[in-house]
C-alpha cells in the first residue's frame, strides 16, 4: 500500500508541474479566448535567456529581472506586431498567429543563445525526503509551493485590481469592453507580460529538472489534457486538471502499463481528456459558452 501512495503523491506533485504550464495558457485564453500555441516557446525563450545570462556571470536576481524585462519587451512586440493588426478577427485567425509565433520565438531563442543544452541549479536539493515512511521529492514540494503562491497572486490580480477587471471584461466581450473605454492594447500587453512571468517561473522549474534545452517547448503537450479536464478559463481548474492528470497517468503507467507493454503515460491523459470532453465539454471549472441563437 505504501508503494501505491508513493506513486499517487509523486503523481500529484508531477501534476503541479503540468499545472504551471497550463496556467500560462489560461491567462491568454482569459484575455482573448485564444489557445496560445506559443506558450511553450515563451517557456523556452525565458529559461534560455535567464540561464545564458547567469552563465555570463550575471547575478541570479539581476538575470531574473533582465529576463522579465525581455519578456515585457516581447509582450509589447507581440501586441504591436501580431495582435493589434488582428484585433476583432476570429479566434482561429489569432490561434494561427500564435502557431506561427511559436516557431519564430523558438528559432529566435536558438539563434540568439545557441542550441547548447544548459544545466540549471536553483539551489534546491532533489534528494528524497522521508515523510511517514514515504519518499517525497523536496524539489516537487518546492514546485507545489511556488504554484500555490502563483495561483494566489493571480487570483488577487484578476479579482482585486483594475487591470484584472479589465481583463475579465475583455474576455467576456471584446467589443463591449472597448465601447466602455477599456484600452485593448494595454490589457493584451499586460496579460502577455504576466504570461511571460509565468513562462519564466515555469521555465526555471522545468529547466532545473530537464536542463534548459529545446525540449522545454514540448512540455506544453502535457498542458493540453490538463486544460481540457480543468477548463481553459480557470486558474484553479488548471491546478485541479494538473493534479488529476499527474496522479492518473502515474497510476496507469504502474498498474495498467504492464498489461499493454508499458509506455502509456503519454497518451493516457488524452484518453482521460476525451472522456471529460464527452461528459463535461467545458472542463471541471471552465465557463460554459451560452450563445443566443
Amino acid at each position: 500500500m505504501d508503494f501505491f501512495f508513493e506513486v499517487l503523491i509523486g503523481g500529484l506533485l508531477s501534476g503541479v508541474m503540468y499545472s504551471l504550464v497550463a496556467i500560462g495558457f489560461v491567462l491568454i485564453y482569459k484575455a482573448s479566448g485564444v489557445f496560445n500555441f506559443a506558450q511553450g516557446a515563451l517557456v523556452l525563450f525565458a529559461a534560455l535567456t535567464f540561464v545564458s545570462l547567469v552563465e555570463r556571470g550575471v547575478a541570479f536576481w539581476l538575470a531574473f529581472g533582465i529576463t522579465m524585462a525581455a519578456m515585457l519587451l516581447l509582450a509589447l512586440g507581440v501586441e504591436r506586431l501580431v495582435l493589434r493588426p488582428l484585433a476583432n478577427r476570429s479566434h482561429i485567425t489569432l490561434f494561427m498567429a500564435t502557431l506561427g509565433l511559436a516557431y519564430i520565438i523558438e528559432g529566435a531563442a536558438q539563434a540568439l543563445w545557441g542550441a547548447q543544452v544548459h544545466g540549471l541549479e536553483l539551489g534546491i536539493e532533489d534528494v528524497p525526503l522521508e515523510v511517514g515512511g514515504l519518499f517525497v521529492s523536496q524539489f516537487d514540494l518546492f514546485a507545489a509551493g511556488t504554484a500555490a503562491t502563483l495561483v494566489l497572486v493571480l487570483s488577487l490580480l484578476f479579482n482585486k485590481t483594475r487591470i484584472g477587471l479589465s481583463l475579465r471584461a475583455v474576455a467576456d466581450d471584446t467589443l463591449a469592453a472597448q465601447a466602455v473605454g477599456i484600452r485593448l492594447p494595454r490589457v493584451w500587453t499586460a496579460v502577455w507580460a504576466v504570461a511571460g512571468l509565468v513562462a519564466l517561473i515555469t521555465g526555471l522549474l522545468w529547466g532545473a529538472r530537464l536542463g534548459v534545452q529545446f525540449s522545454l517547448s514540448l512540455v506544453v503537450l502535457k498542458a493540453l489534457p490538463v486544460l481540457i479536464i480543468g477548463g481553459f478559463s480557470s486558474v484553479g481548474g488548471a491546478i485541479a486538471g494538473g493534479l488529476i492528470v499527474g496522479a492518473s497517468e502515474k497510476l496507469a503507467e504502474i498498474y495498467v502499463g504492464p498489461l499493454v507493454d508499458g509506455g502509456i503515460e503519454n497518451w493516457f491523459p488524452y484518453i482521460l481528456a476525451t472522456l471529460f470532453l464527452l461528459v463535461r465539454p467545458a472542463g471541471l471549472f471552465g465557463e460554459r459558452a451560452i450563445e443566443r441563437v
Binding site: K222, E249, K250, E253, G262, G263, E265
Partner: peptide, 17 residues
C-alpha cells in the same frame, strides 16, 4: 524492460518501479 515515452521528460513511475 521499461519504456519511457518520447521525449522522456517524465519518468517518476518508471523509477519508482
Amino acid at each position: 524492460l521499461l519504456e519511457v515515452p518520447h521525449p522522456g521528460n517524465e519518468q517518476q513511475s518508471q523509477w519508482l518501479n
